[in-house]
């Protein structure tokens, strides 16, 4: 090692040591939310004391996001990184945190909240191989469509906000209490409404719906993707056509960001409708917040006359 390299390492080490106490006084808590559902929840629980940046919209596939400049700028300001975790954002979040994240928003710190760490996940794997497609060995990360999970995360978030911004602890607790009361009542309504879906068969594009299906005891008859993350192929669709013929499939569910072509192909041949569900907040004009997201989702799924795509 040359003298000046040594000197450089020293400079960097000194800078590293300078990373000292986390600052406690916050005017507003800047929240970097990876997806619209967590952004919405952060607004609900944080209220006036937070400023939320949603890194993605409902029209974007959170698996495929670029670590673009605006996200670096947002990460630079973040006091709390509120994402899904379970490798959902692995293609872009690590690069943002490494490059622009401060010491208070690193993994295993107060400013790092990965929702999937706090709920029971579906499909955890002891063994994973890339031949299985884009799999998440940590379990299915699309946890937000089970409203029980939302409630769990809301509580975690309120606790976390109180830690980051202790001055407004009471407000965060009150916001959570209000949210929780309303949400509990909503869950009862939604479950009543969704009872008719029990055992009904649905075709999905990607296993992004696993938690919704599990919650309402719906049956996932098939995925349009041959393997997670691999786009639908003609051969796979032909196979689906044969296996699904005669099965009483209620509908094909698609998200706003998924290509509808494969769904349309199967829909016409099997004569079953396509249901465009919002998937997350902002997924359509009606799904303006978390409550509306579930209202619209349940409403669409249970509608007697479902829209047929022809």
């Amino acid at each position: 090692m040359t003298y000046r390299l040594k000197k450089l390492y020293k400079v960097i080490a000194v800078l590293g040591v300078l990373i000292a106490s986390p600052s406690s006084a916050h005017a507003t808590v800047n929240i970097f939310a990876c997806t619209p559902e967590w952004a919405a929840l952060a607004e609900d629980i944080g209220g006036a004391h937070v400023k939320v940046k949603a890194a993605t919209t409902a029209q974007q596939d959170v698996h495929h996001i670029r670590a673009k400049p605006s996200l670096l700028a947002a990460m630079r300001q973040a006091d709390l990184v509120f994402c899904t975790g379970a490798s959902l954002e692995i293609g872009w979040l690590p690069i943002l945190v490494k490059k622009a994240g401060g010491p208070n928003v690193q993994p295993e710190t107060e400013g790092w909240l990965m929702a999937a760490d706090y709920v029971e996940k579906i499909g955890m794997m002891e063994h994973a191989d890339r031949s299985m497609g884009h799999v998440h060995p940590e379990g299915n990360p699309h946890i937000h469509l089970n409203p029980h999970n939302i409630l769990t995360i809301a509580e975690v978030l309120s606790t976390r906000l109180a830690l980051i911004d202790p001055d407004h602890r009471a407000d965060y607790q009150a916001n959570f209490a209000r949210f929780s009361d309303a949400w509990d009542k909503n869950i009862v309504t939604w479950q009543k409404q969704g009872a008719m879906l029990n055992g009904q068969k649905f075709v999905v594009y990607h296993n992004a719906w696993a938690y919704l299906l599990q919650w309402l005891n719906m049956d996932a008859a098939a995925s349009l993707e041959p393997k997670p993350g691999i786009p639908p192929s003609a051969a796979h669709l032909e196979k689906l056509l044969t296996t699904l013929k005669g099965q009483n499939v209620r509908a094909i569910i698609v998200t706003p960001y998924e290509n509808r072509k494969a769904a349309e192909w199967l829909s016409t041949r099997l004569n079953i409708p396509i249901l465009d569900l919002p998937f997350t907040v902002g997924g359509n004009t009606e799904a303006t917040n978390l409550t509306r997201l579930f209202d619209v989702t349940l409403g669409t799924l249970t509608a007697q006359k479902v829209h047929k795509n022809e």
């Binding site: 390299l5 450089l8 390492y9 400079v11 960097i12 800078l15 590293g16 300078l18 990373i19 630079r76 490494k98 490059k99 622009a100 994240g101 401060g102 010491p103 690193q106």
Partner: peptide, 13 residues
Amino acid sequence: ETLSLPYGLHGKA
């Protein structure tokens, strides 16, 4: 490289 420098700093050596 550094993982968590404050003030948006990042160093590499």
